[in-house]
Write a protein that binds this DNA or RNA. Structure first.
Lengths: 155, 155
DNA sequence: CCGAATGAGTTCCCTCAGGGAACCCTATTG
DNA sequence: CAATAGGGTTCCCTGAGGGAACTCATTCGG
């Protein structure tokens, strides 16, 4: 889709960006997440070009991030829903939201709030270590080559 | 930079994508994070066009994600480093890595591993609620309008 | 029975951003 | 004095994004 093939790089960031690294995709996912699941609704709520929307949806289907269900046959009408893979991408969106709220929201405050089911409070995500549970930021880690680092000098 | 102005939308995802929603930016940030800080090094390690690299760096400087330091005057030579704002974007990269590792890595395994300073273990980030500390996924929350939701029907 | 509306796309054309190569400028090095 | 290095800028070409119009199948209103 992009000029450069990011999906082929030995880098999980590049590969993830190959899937959603074009700014409409996260917004499409967000809208499907909050219940805007049909082509027409998506196009209107986002103001995206119909052509580009069709391309993105096809792309996200191919990657297994979305599924298409027929909610009416004759005439066939479809709606798009998140797969597990896609729902986990929404976790990434929550982190984007957190950064955007912190650094770009301006005086009006965050446009959207999130209430955590478990505790019932308005909250936000915080990255923590899956092993020890302590906060885990980019400043708190060492980067080491992994098994899939391979030939690619790009990683 | 993009055709559509994402930065003006009342949505933190859109605003974040306005900053890094073009697939080279996260890779530039990643490389600066791991110590590739100069124009020439960045261009060669990423295989990015010099023109596009210059554009991205300027963009990221304007947004306060990067800073430029002169490491040699006469001839003036610069290196780019992350601001706090930029370092917090790297937390977002860690989440991208996690998703990419889980869903796109293939049989070779993840290309890069991360060791958490606090516990010394190879680990990965997990999103948790900043209030109660329990896991906080997209499936675990309600979305509510916030103070900055405003007029925009896009949100 | 005819015309309009709905939903989901597809097609066409235009413009602008990405890619690549060449070029520029300043200073140091051999 | 030529070559090299670092950090860009300029040029041109192609292809992706934007917008509007069109298609196709079906249903609804009068």
């Amino acid at each position: 889709m992009q000029r450069t093939r990011f999906g082929d790089m030995a880098c999980s960031i590049a590969r993830t960006m190959d899937v959603i690294g074009e700014p409409w995709s996260p917004l499409i996912l967000r809208n499907i997440y909050i219940g805007v699941t049909r082509f027409e609704q998506l196009q209107q709520s986002l103001g995206i070009s119909r052509k580009v929307l069709a391309e993105r949806l096809k792309w996200l289907l191919e990657y297994g991030v979305l599924e298409r269900q027929e909610y009416s046959s004759r005439p066939p009408r479809y709606e798009y829903t998140l797969t597990t893979k896609g729902m986990e991408l929404c976790d990434l969106l929550l982190v984007m939201v957190r950064w955007g709220d912190r650094w770009l929201a301006g005086p009006a405050g965050p446009p959207v709030l999130y209430r955590h089911h478990a505790c019932g409070k308005i909250s936000h995500v915080e990255p923590r270590c899956a092993e020890c549970g302590e906060p885990m930021h980019a400043t708190d880690i060492d980067v080491l080559p992994g098994p899939g680092s391979d030939v690619e000098p790009t990683d």
